[in-house]
């Protein structure tokens, strides 16, 4: 990975030198060994700080949104999941492709810095020996970038072993009461910190429905009803948009299995409107199934 790190740094420095980019979105080392943190480089000198290591897990595509109204040319390092997020943003016309210079990285799987610091600090219980990859990376179906201008690192095999929708299938086996109780229990824990939304590359609405106050669609009470409303509305907005980067579930401070909801919708979108995998390849003008309308649709509107 040292090699990947060096190449990203080299390319970024060259891009700055040749004035092909104004900013580069990558990672730098934080205060602690396992803190590799998102970093916005603005100069060739900044670019020297760029790193790529086993903790470069953040999906940088969300950072891109901070620049959507500007005209800066942006360099960005993208693992497989990050690159799918970028495709989705391009499909949603959040960016012109010309503004981006993408360094694709074949991703060998990442460790979770949040797990690491949780255990290091003593605030989270020890789990495993600390060498395991992040849970989400064991379910990865696309470790290689799907869109890039430069490619670094080697092609990686899919790490998914077993049934992709195993968790979803188990949930589908529950009867309605069990399922309701399951979600009530799980979602009651939510503290409404909105971290799942803020780190989500598919959440690119300028004004989020949950921030609207006039009218206020979702109550702010920390109650099962309001929490469910939040999570179900959020999950349905993800249908056809979620690229399975798993950041929402990873950052959740109370361990809500958010990807379970997302995967259920991935599965359903695939079944009813597919075959479809969000952000797998960039075709200009392409739209996810729930963003397009055809007169030949078999169903009436709603």
């Amino acid at each position: 990975m040292k090699d990947i790190s060096n190449k990203i740094r080299e390319i970024a420095q060259t891009l700055f030198k040749e004035k092909k980019i104004d900013v580069f979105l990558g990672w730098e080392k934080g205060a602690l060994d396992f803190q590799t943190v998102p970093f916005i480089a603005r100069s060739e000198a900044d670019a020297r700080k760029l790193v790529f290591d086993e903790y470069s897990i953040h999906n940088l595509a969300t950072l891109l949104l901070k620049f959507r109204d500007g005209s800066e040319k942006i360099g960005i390092a993208a693992k497989g999941c990050d690159s799918r997020s970028i495709v989705r943003l391009l499909e949603d016309k959040q960016f012109a492709r010309e503004r981006l210079h993408i360094i694709g990285v074949g991703c060998p799987g990442m460790k979770d810095p949040l797990q690491a610091i949780g255990m290091y600090s003593g605030l989270k219980k020890q789990q495993g020996d600390g060498n395991a990859l992040a849970a989400k990376c064991y379910e990865c179906v696309q470790p290689n970038p799907v869109i890039y201008d430069d490619l670094v690192g080697s092609q990686q095999p899919s790490r998914l072993t077993g049934e992709r929708f195993a968790r979803v299938n188990a949930m589908e086996q529950m009867n309605a009461d069990e399922r309701y109780r399951f979600f009530e229990d799980t979602l009651s824990k939510c503290i409404r910190c909105y971290a799942c939304r803020q780190v989500c590359p598919a959440c690119n609405c300028r004004t989020c429905i949950f921030d609207e106050m006039k009218p206020q669609w979702v109550g702010r009470e920390n109650s099962p009803e309001d929490n469910m409303m939040y999570h179900l509305v959020k999950a349905s907005h993800m249908a056809g948009r979620c690229v399975e980067c798993g950041e929402c579930e990873r950052v959740c401070p109370v361990n809500i299995p958010l990807m379970l909801l997302n995967q259920k919708l991935i599965k359903d979108v695939n079944t009813f409107f597919g075959p479809y995998e969000a952000g797998m390849n960039y075709v200009e003008g392409a739209k996810p199934p729930l963003s397009s309308y055809s007169e030949k649709d078999p169903d009436d509107f709603i």
Binding site: L32, T36, L114
Partner: peptide, 16 residues
Amino acid sequence: CGRCIVACPAGINIVK
């Protein structure tokens, strides 16, 4: 208490 350091998705560290 260090909790924000442990929880921040972006690795923002108040000590730093």
